[in-house]
Write a protein that binds this DNA or RNA. Sequence first.
DNA 1: ATGGTCGCCATTGTATACAATGTGGCGGAA
DNA 2: TTCCGCCACATTGTATACAATGGCGACCAT
Lengths: 222, 222
Amino acid sequence: MATATEKAYDIIRRNILDGVFEAGTHLKEEDLVRLCGVSRTPVRDALRRLAIDHYVVTRPNQGTFVNQWSLKDIHDIFELRAMLEGVVARRAAAAIGPGHMAALKQAFGTIQAMLADDAADLDVNLFLAENKIFHMTMLQAADSAPLATMLSSLVQPPIVARTALGYNVEDLRQSNEHHRELIEALGVGDGAWAEAIMQAHIRAAHRKFMASYRPGGGFAAP
Amino acid sequence: MATATEKAYDIIRRNILDGVFEAGTHLKEEDLVRLCGVSRTPVRDALRRLAIDHYVVTRPNQGTFVNQWSLKDIHDIFELRAMLEGVVARRAAAAIGPGHMAALKQAFGTIQAMLADDAADLDVNLFLAENKIFHMTMLQAADSAPLATMLSSLVQPPIVARTALGYNVEDLRQSNEHHRELIEALGVGDGAWAEAIMQAHIRAAHRKFMASYRPGGGFAAP
DNA sequence: ATGGTCGCCATTGTATACAATGTGGCGGAA
DNA sequence: TTCCGCCACATTGTATACAATGGCGACCAT
């Protein structure tokens, strides 16, 4: 966290993800100055960067607001993610090398170990971190900068995080079984197989998310 | 062009599109201050907005550079555009109303009129404007904010503009015939048909673009 | 001659002061 | 009472001054 802009970015982002700043909230620059302990200039910079990542939207002369998605938007996002992550899997099957393959297996193994232990002490954030590593590795293996750019604008952290909150242990096991099958498909270079299982993987997440979604913006406990 | 930020944004963007700022150029804030006649603050704001739209990339403590795409990136961009614009067409076929349909027919008619005249006096910018209206109308008819966001990050104006430069009159006629067929498919609500012809439309543009592409960044005259 | 290191300068990052804008409330008139 | 217009304030937009960073070249040591 070397620069003031980064500091402001991280603090604001964290508050959005933690739900302190609810969807639609008007983020006033002066308040953020007090919260972050930096001047307005880096705060404004941070808000622009958050706009790039679609955490917020800025309306000229009005201010910056925490982004919110309609139910329809969320459906569309999952729909598009299923399609694009499917492409990622297909391309990864054609291009993956031993390094990325090893990273995938390790992420799978780490999650598997989490699930083998008593489920009670499972740390959702730890799961999310490993899950992210898995998907990022796939993305790198697919070796397409435009594809990576598009997906990054589609994988909305608030939604992904809340999806995980809706998971129970059985759901997590199913999720990691998909990972296992993806590794298998990639191992034999079967792009169509990899694409299909990846689409199932995302669509399953979609259903789990909807099951715990509440229109008001709140979410059911896991 | 009310605000200084908008002014800077438009000037810098125009210079990039016109090729004054070539790909990879280091855009120095102080130079842009002199060019735009505003202070550094709105210039920096404008550069952040240009980064959102992928015209430039910013590296911390190093500066802002005009974005450049590799040949592979360009292929990927067209590939993804074909897929996503296909989805747009499919969804538009299911949801389009009379207003959007009329707009599509008008854009088609305008382009048709351009091509009926003597080809010598054809204004490429005018064609581009109507072409954009056509595709934006399709996007609105598809009625999906996430889809619109993704495509906007994929439709790189420099590439689209240079694609048109590579067109000859026959290519333009083919392009507008695709538009005609899209309207027909949408009229009978055949989403699969619309999707297929849209994919062909983008892939044809891809080939026309590659035919006039020169690796150095220059392009053959039309 | 070559390799590394130090310091200067160009450039970006940050803070603060001031200007402009848009909004909400108050008051007056119909 | 209700609607319109105006004023004041809260908030964002802009300019300028200062701080920090990093790249590049010169210089020294080997």
